[in-house]
């Protein structure tokens, strides 16, 4: 039945690239696969390493690999935005957070909580289910990467400022709110720091 469905899909109109085969990967596919393996490996090291700073540095590798994947998918603008925002600012913020919370430099044995085996079971089950569904659904679908790039800066600017102006502006308001919120949270903590002995005394009495 699966075969029949696949044949039906292959003869359906939305598949204009029926000349592709599974056993003849193109160069882009091989590059995508290799970079994807590096990205996935870096992500796995990120969530399993016991050295907190190394986790942040491996996250750089994973996010940079994803930027390369965006480039291979011809989404250039998003690739550079990924490099600028994620690798440039988010990882730096995470490293500052690790430093400010006095994270141990070496191996910390309690990086993983006690429910890691339940978490592993959930993650593996979700991975099996998702990969199965996705492969079964899109086994006869090919992305046409020839022709003009789908995500150059010109195309991005056109669709962003022609069709998505209102969400874009709303997003700037959200960023302002996040900025103010972060400042308020930090200020409140600093105001509490003045009365730290009283707070600690209360907690100790409790």
């Amino acid at each position: 039945m699966n075969l029949a469905a696949a044949v039906h899909l292959a003869s359906a109109p939305p598949v204009p690239h029926a000349q592709h085969g599974f056993l003849s990967p193109t160069g882009v596919e091989i590059a995508f696969l290799l970079v994807g393996l590096v990205t996935l490996g870096a992500a796995l090291v990120t969530v399993t390493t016991r050295q907190l700073v190394h986790a942040a540095l491996w996250l750089v590798v994973a996010l940079g690999g994803l930027a390369v994947e965006y480039l291979l998918l011809t989404a250039e603008f998003i690739a550079w935005v990924q490099v600028l925002i994620y690798v440039g600012s988010v990882v730096v913020l995470l490293l500052f957070g690790l430093m400010l919370t006095k994270a141990p430099i070496g191996r910390s044995p309690d990086a993983d909580s006690g429910n890691r085996w339940a978490a592993l079971a959930v993650a593996v089950a979700a991975a099996v289910a998702l990969v199965w569904v996705v492969v079964d659904a899109f086994r006869t679908t090919w992305i046409d990467l020839d022709g003009p790039a789908a995500g150059t800066t010109e195309v991005t600017g056109t669709f962003l400022f022609r069709h998505w102006v209102l969400p874009f502006e709303a997003l700037s308001v959200l960023l302002l709110a996040a900025l103010v919120g972060a400042i308020v949270l930090s200020r409140k903590a600093r105001a509490d720091a003045d009365t730290t002995p009283a707070v600690h005394g209360k907690e100790g009495a409790r």
Partner: peptide
């Protein structure tokens, strides 16, 4: 490019993050 490559990579990365 086969669409399954980015879709599978995305699913595996999501489950890595979930773990």
């Amino acid at each position: 490019m086969h669409l399954a490559y980015p879709a599978v990579l995305s699913a595996l990365l999501f489950c890595t993050g979930l773990y």
